[in-house]
């Protein structure tokens, strides 16, 4: 069945700017975990990606998560993999893939956090800066 759609998906050499908007806290719902899976897959397609944390999404990258007592998988270490993908893309001159990891300043400050609270290095952008950057994207995925 897949073959009949193949001509619709001639994406060889096509490069798009993807933004993944994370606005939900971890564990209370599954959204944060499944969006991470999508981010990791996009690396295989060598697409540009911005991983953005807004509103309660900033709780996803809070340091010190310990889920033992609720018997759920602690997925905050997965963000390290995203950080490594970004570093690979930054360092490899043959790889045409720009990744950015961004936290919205207003959301971070509203929750009493600073960049030191996070498990990964992030760029902090104001609402206005992030809003303008959002306009430049081709595909915005939110979960």
């Amino acid at each position: 069945m897949e073959d009949q759609f193949e001509d619709l998906f001639d994406i060889e050499g096509v490069k798009k700017k993807f933004m993944f908007v994370n606005r939900k806290a971890p564990y209370g719902t599954i959204y944060a975990l499944e969006v991470l899976e999508a981010v990791l897959i996009s690396a295989a397609f060598e697409q540009h990606a911005a991983i953005v944390f807004v509103d309660d999404g900033v709780y996803q990258i809070k340091k010190g998560q310990d889920t033992k007592a609720i018997n759920m998988k602690n997925f905050s270490p997965t963000f390290k993999i995203i950080e490594m993908e970004k570093e690979d893309a930054d360092e490899d001159p043959d790889m045409d893939m720009v990744w950015r990891i961004i936290v919205e300043k207003e959301s971070m400050e509203a929750r009493g956090f600073t960049p030191d609270d996070f498990v990964i290095d992030v760029e902090v952008l104001s609402s206005a800066e992030l809003g303008a950057f959002m306009e430049e994207q081709d595909v915005i995925l939110s979960g």
Partner: peptide, 8 residues
């Protein structure tokens, strides 16, 4: 309008 952001 360019891209769509769905505020879920």
């Amino acid at each position: 309008h360019g891209p769509t952001q769905t505020w879920l």
